[in-house]
Each structure stands twice: as C-alpha cells, then as structure tokens.
Write a protein that binds this DNA or RNA. Structure first.
Lengths: 243, 243
DNA sequence: CGTGAGATTGATTTCTATCAAAATATGTGG
DNA sequence: CCACATATTTTGATAGAAATCAATCTCACG
C-alpha cells in the first residue's frame, strides 16, 4: 500500500538536507491508525493539532445549516492536513478518513519549533500552502463557471493525477474511494446527477468502470471537457534558499 | 483614501520587531500607480514578481475557454497578491485594478532573502497563506452548495468585512466598486440574476443602495441567508515564535 | 446632447434538483 | 457461507432555479 512521508514529498520539489529531513520526520513520530469513516477532526472543535497523512485518504468538508455537505479537499499520503489550525483555534472544517488510514498528529508548538529552527522549511511550507491555494482557485472556477459534466471530468482528472503523485504504478486506472454522493458533494451536484454524467461519459467511451476502479480512456478529451490544467507539472520551487 | 502597508497589516496579528518591520517595508520600495482597469498581471505570462497592494482594489480572475470569467478574489490595501508566482513561473491568474491603485512589486528573490533572514516572517506568511486558503474554502462551499441569494449575501458581507479591516470609518455602508456583472463572475451567476437577487434583497429591506454605495441594513439576517461566518474575528496567531 | 456602459425587466429555455422506485452491491451476524 | 440489512447505483418523471435572449431604461461623461 502506498505510504509517503512528508519529507519525501517535499524533497520531490527541493533538495533537503539530512538535518531538515530528520526534523520533518519528527513530526511523524506518533502515527495513529484511523478506520475508514472515522472522524479525525470535527468542525468547531478546539484544535491545536495538525497532521501529516501517511497512508490512505482523508477528506475535509463542512456541513451547511440546511444539512448539505461541501467536500473541500481530498488528501493523499504525504499531504499536510488540518493546516487551518495554524490560524484558527476552532476547526473550520471536519476531517474524515475515506480509507483505513494512518495520520501523524503533532502539536502546533512542534510546528513552531520547526519553523524557528528551519527557516527554509518554513519557506517551503509557505510555498506549498500557496500551491494549495491555487488548487483551490481551480476548483472555484470549476464550480462557478462550468457544467456538471465538466466538473466531473475535472474532478476525476484531479484525483487521478494526485493519486499518481504517490503511486507510480498507476497509469490510467485508479480507485476513487468515493461514492457518487461524495463526488457530488465535492463538486456541487446531487448524486443523481453525478450518476447521469458518469453514465454518459461511460457511454461516450471517455471512462470505464469495474468494481470501484475507474479508467480514464481518453485523457486528452477529458481535459478539454473539464477545462483541466495539471498544475503539478510546472511547479517551480528552485529559487528557494539553498540547503 | 485608505492605504495600508504590509507590515501594519501583519502587525495587527502579531507584534513585529522594528527590524522585521523595516525588512517588510523594503518590499514596498517601488510603489507603482495603476489606473482603474489596468492589467497588472496576465494569465500564462512569465512572472517573477509579487506585489503588496498599498492603495485601491485589485481582483484576480481566470477566463475559461468558452469566454466566461471566474473572479477568484478581490484584494484590499495591505494584501499580499500574486503569491502564485512563488510556486509557478507562469501566472495561473490575471490581476486587474478595480480602482486607481498603488501596487508595490518586488522580485521573488527579494522574498527569498526576506524568508532567509527572517524566519518569523516566513512563518507568518505561511499562516496568512493558510488563512487565505480557509477563505477560499468558504467561497467553495458558497458556490457549491448555496442558492443565488445566499451567495450574493455572503459576498456582500465578505467585501464589507474586508473593507472594514482597512477602513475603520465604515460602519454599515461601503463602496463595492464592482459591477453586477463582476459580482456574478465572482459568485458564479449571470449579471441578470445578480440584479434580480440584489433587487429582491432591496425590496425586503436587507440592503439599500445609493450612487454606488451599498448599505447593509440587516446584517444578522444577511449572515443567516448567506451562511456567513466572519473568519477575521477569531484568528489566533499568538503561538508563533516571539519576536 | 449623444454615446455607451451598466442596470432593470420580461419571456423563454435549459440545466440540475427533487422525488420516487428499482436494481445492485456490500457488508454483517449468525 | 448464507441470508438479511444497508448502502450505493441506476433510471424515470417532474419541478425549480438560474441562464439566455431581448428590450428598455438610466446615468455618467466626453
């Protein structure tokens, strides 16, 4: 099963010194198993912890007063999650495991010490947070300005490309680990309509499905339909302070 | 006219040392006037600059292949803009002045030097970037899961509260400096429908309008309608390294 | 004044939600 | 390992929200 530590993930962008790697590894000293469906953090709860996700998948979401849910983000191994608690003492979003997962909680004061001692890591975290913000703007444009079909296409491509970041064995088919209702909650549609779109894309030969796995059969056309741009390709962090 | 430097804005969250303030002030050494409507940054252009917005207002947006526009964010004096160029060498979004404005461009290598020398500032920027990300998730939930009326209400409240951050004189009425078409592009609606919602809210006594200024007459109900939570209130950055 | 951008209103269409039911799949306790 | 309970997917019919199309109106400004 694909697992990924935070240091490795960061090192994919910028070379890290051994000291830095070791310091980052300390954030993951307390791995904790969580079962599929388990709540890792509840909205409005007082929080002082952040997490590195080591194994499995996690989603963040909010529930609106009318009961509807907006899934904000799906996280993969090596992702830094719950970063909102660096700024707010009450969690603005909930975190639930989509999978049997392993998360590594650490106190924000451990983060503070890391930031103090390793300015280069602080800078790197700043950059990655900016990258997250850009990912968010892509979703915003998708929700605000594109059709149901485009949203589904963009969402599938997004998950696909992020799965591939941590799992090289994947070429065109992958486990979504989300119900159609969850997909809908992520992209602002009802499960019924997600199903119609998925069905349609299947008929058109854009995707195929078999026991929970999705295959993207025509990535190029999916990218067109979803107005998708892969942001992972052209990240450029080399200008950072040298190690 | 309300202007605000970056250091002052940051100092509202955390006490800054004089050295730090001075270092931050150096980012603003090259103020540049831009006229209303002027493009500050064009999407896909190679960029190595970031900006602090000193005066006026700026918006970021993308244009989709079908010509529709998604406004991603409206920026106010003291905001740090164009942070995507810390991660991408081609701008993922365009920047246009909504106002006659003053921006202070600085090279990302100036930022690098700042981050190297002042880890505490690096940490602070990291936190503010996280706050931006949370603001983004609020908009995502708004676009994905709420009605046209709710979106308009939430949008007005958001702008209102952010205007107030830099201008204490404002109590309940403010200049939006956006056409109804732009509002629509920000919240995923057509200008026609924005107009209907605004009209309706006016009839219901929730807001009133006079020569471009908007007054929020019933903030409490607007917050309910828009499912709005003011995130500026309970930010907590005190746990950061001491000066 | 005339011109053009923006606001407003009405009529109609389109997309997506909602409601309802059936069909499949998944999981669990015995 | 089966049988039942529950969750998820699928399909159809209908309703509703917002888009689109098309004028008209208003107002700031050269």
């Amino acid at each position: 099963m694909a697992g990924s530590c935070f240091a490795d993930r960061l090192a994919k962008h910028v070379p890290l010194s051994d000291v830095e790697k070791k310091a980052l590894a300390r954030l993951e000293e307390n791995p904790r198993r969580v079962k599929r469906g388990a709540m890792i953090q509840r909205v409005n709860e007082t929080v002082t912890e952040l997490f590195v996700l080591r194994h499995g998948r996690v989603m963040s979401f909010v529930i609106l007063p009318d009961g509807s849910r907006q899934i904000l983000r799906v996280y993969f191994p090596g992702d830094f999650i719950g970063s909102a608690s660096t700024v707010y003492s009450k969690a603005p979003e909930s975190l639930v495991a989509l999978d049997d997962a392993v998360v590594c909680p650490f106190d924000k004061h451990a983060l503070r010490r890391l930031l103090e001692e390793f300015p280069r890591v602080a800078a790197l975290l700043f950059l990655l947070s900016n990258a997250e913000r850009v990912a968010m703007t892509d979703r915003l444009a998708s929700l605000g300005r594109t059709s149901a079909k485009a949203r589904v296409a963009a969402f599938l491509l997004d998950i696909f490309n992020r799965v591939r970041l941590t799992d090289d064995s994947i070429t065109d088919s992958f486990d979504l680990k989300l119900t159609q209702e969850e997909i809908g909650d992520a992209i602002g549609l009802t499960s019924v309509h997600v199903n119609r779109m998925v069905r349609q894309m299947e008929l058109e030969g854009l995707i195929s499905r078999a026991n929970g796995r999705i295959s993207l059969l025509d990535i190029k056309r999916l990218e067109e339909i979803g107005h998708y741009t892969n942001r992972h390709k052209d990240m450029d962090l080399d200008w950072l302070p040298a190690a």
